[in-house]
Amino acid sequence: MKPVSVYITVPGSSAQRDMSGWRNKKPVIDYGRCTNCLICWIFCPEPAIIREEGKIVIDYMHCKGCGICAVECPRKCIEMVGEL
């Protein structure tokens, strides 16, 4: 059955959109100082900080470069790095 086009039938399709173009600075983590406290994971307004085994990683396809993670990091180990 072909659905009418006002219905979006692929669940989670918005996750496939590349949002990296919204950004002019990207957060970079200094893993040498990161304690994996997850404060950045809590504050990220997008689901752009992902928990992996024993560390967090940044999903650069969805990160819009807001910088909240860098401000909130208690050890100041996230740096916003300019992008071309």
Binding site: P3, V6, Y7, I8, P11
Partner: peptide
């Protein structure tokens, strides 16, 4: 069973 988004 067959999820979709309505009202996006």
């Amino acid at each position: 069973e067959t999820p979709m988004t309505v009202g996006a």
